[in-house]
Design a protein around this nucleic acid. Structure first.
Lengths: 343, 343
DNA sequence: TGTTAGCACTCAAAGGTGGCGAGTGCTATT
DNA sequence: AATAGCACTCGCCACCTTTGAGTGCTAACA
């Protein structure tokens, strides 16, 4: 996988990748010689480019066009060439103020974050909320909403909230609900939501509880209250990919949009990123997102005060401004982590 | 506005509109004569079409193409020509089962509804939740989440829930919060959310309350809890408009997508539809949505048990399958109304 | 008077041609 | 090893012609 290259070849490859990122047009030997202001003639550059093509780092769309980087070239570029830009003062300011804005609720923060990512990168911003299920239980509460209708409210230590309307077999008066709540709050103290769920199920099997009317009802209601829910995911700036020339034709765009409408695909993709620390980069087919469509993904995970982990990042074309987007994703992840931990 | 037309002209106009809806291509005189199986030669049809063009119902993109309907023609078609298809048994089944699916929560139902609308129409489905603000207050509750952090939960009679994380100046223990809740619940009984908001503000000015410590705190917290929130809006099936040939070029699509990212525009547009009963149809520029892009909107409002009103509908190209979409929107609105009223 | 056949006309779309120029690979030269 | 020179390739563009769908007009007809 890793490639042995002379310093000169590396420089030339870097120039080509960056030129192509900037223009989206195949870049030719003379362009490299000129732009790069190196003391090399186009002919020499040609020789080098020819080597790079043999190594599978470049292709030419046809004989007399320039050459464009392959996925392998992007990979190499990202791994060992790219000179990361610093995050500018202004960008930092934007990240910090935007993430703070819009309420202290977890959802609000994350939504704003994904919007900010989109704005700063000019690609699509994406944030996956920390899994509710793995977060620590904090509070459960029941509110009587109407005849045999209860609103169950489940709060995690992150401040994530899950509401669920539950229809019960019999009517319950408010005091009963309070007692149920107290009992369940005690029972689930310190557990994660997943553990709490298991606990409820095991308690329901417990014979002792089956004969206690209040208890058995509390359990059956809370079973519904803690039922599994899909993870929350925020996507912002979808229209921006229309700016990219490579997606100007309808067929490709449609493919992408359809992939994104099924958020499940995204989630599956992103859950992979959760395990590793730091910025993760998936290029083209590595994303396993619509193999024809040439998109890349830059992500980083963030952690919350209660140590659950979420994911944020940017989706753009393979021909993406890595040098600026990588630091932005990195910095944003750090800021969000800090913001969610101090709270 | 309304046009006097002979039966024959009407027939021909109808044929043209429907042909164009089906094919998205300019339709010529001979096509009409043939398809329509009327005992008329293409020459005769030409004469009629010429008249229709003079009346502003048709235009030709250039001399030797066929003719396409103008917005005025669609308007006329919708008002007095279209033969509405019945909603098929299968469609009814889909509408009913889908809307029911996915939890009893208001948001869940509406989200599923917009997805169903999109699926059945093959255009974009859209649902605006009944305004939380005009709904009747049902319950407020405070949960202590951490040091000086309170989760305020506001429930309306529709079962809509608004959570808000509030940072307070001082710490409050759970019992205090319960008392505050009781007091506020009593105070807001029977009011709409908007009225409740006003009530809180006026009570805060009341001198008597300013010296009651608990009271003044309860009010200042609840002020934040009942603060105005944007209306919820569900859009589903955005990718479907990519199927339409008229939107196959990137510039037009971008225009549309950008319009939709600003949900504010949609909301403004849709609030107009709230006032009138029954199915409302906005064609092309009548939507005041991106005047170049030729989209139409078919909406109907629905009502909830507590008599707040929401809006649902379909957005598609002007060249839309009105005959089938109108009944679908109509039927869906009725079903959603029924579903939300019986609950 | 309304309908129709015939015909000349228009014009976009499709296909063909040739020049242009960016870019390549090869080779001889330094 | 680097370069200059040169023949070659091939997409792009501008220009042309052909094709065919469709029109408007007119004269003939019921």
């Amino acid at each position: 996988m890793d490639v042995e290259l002379s310093a000169r070849s590396r420089q030339i490859l870097e120039a080509i990748v960056e030129d192509y990122i900037a223009t989206a047009e195949p870049v030719g030997s003379s362009a490299v010689a000129r732009r790069h202001a190196m003391t090399l003639s186009s002919a020499t550059v040609r020789n080098v480019m020819s080597n790079l093509e043999e190594m599978g780092l470049l292709t030419s769309p046809h004989t007399s066009a320039g050459r464009i980087p392959t996925e392998k070239a992007y990979r190499f570029y990202v791994d060992s060439l790219v000179a990361l830009r610093r995050v500018s003062r202004d960008e930092k300011r934007q990240i910090i103020t935007h993430c703070r804005r819009g309420g202290a609720g977890l959802s609000d923060i994350l939504k704003e974050t994904s919007r900010t990512l989109s704005q700063l990168s000019n690609y699509m911003g994406i944030v996956v909320a920390p899994s509710f299920n793995s977060d620590v239980f904090r509070h459960i509460e029941f509110i009587r909403i109407g005849q045999r209708k209860i609103l169950a409210i489940l709060v995690s230590s992150n401040g994530a909230v899950q509401n669920r309307l539950i229809e019960t077999a019999e009517d319950h008066d408010p005091e009963e609900l309070v007692r149920m709540g107290n009992y369940l709050n005690e029972m689930m103290q310190g557990l994660t939501i997943t553990q709490a769920r298991e606990r409820v199920l095991s308690e329901m099997k417990n014979e002792k509880n089956q004969y206690d009317r209040l208890m058995s009802r509390a359990l059956s209601i809370s079973e519904q209250a803690v039922a599994v829910d899909g993870d929350e995911i925020f996507v912002e700036g979808q229209a921006r990919i229309l700016d990219q020339p490579e997606f100007s034709d309808a067929a490709r765009m449609k493919e992408i949009y359809e992939a994104f409408e099924k958020k499940g695909i995204l989630l599956q993709l992103l859950s992979r990123c959760m395990s590793a620390d730091g910025v993760q980069i998936y290029i083209g087919s590595e994303t396993s997102l619509s193999r024809t469509a040439g998109v890349s993904l830059i992500t980083s995970r963030f952690v919350t005060g209660s140590n659950t982990v979420g994911m944020l990042g940017v989706i753009g074309p393979t021909r993406m401004g890595y040098s600026s987007v990588i630091p932005i994703v990195d910095y944003t992840a750090r800021m969000v982590s800090r913001l969610l931990s101090e709270g």
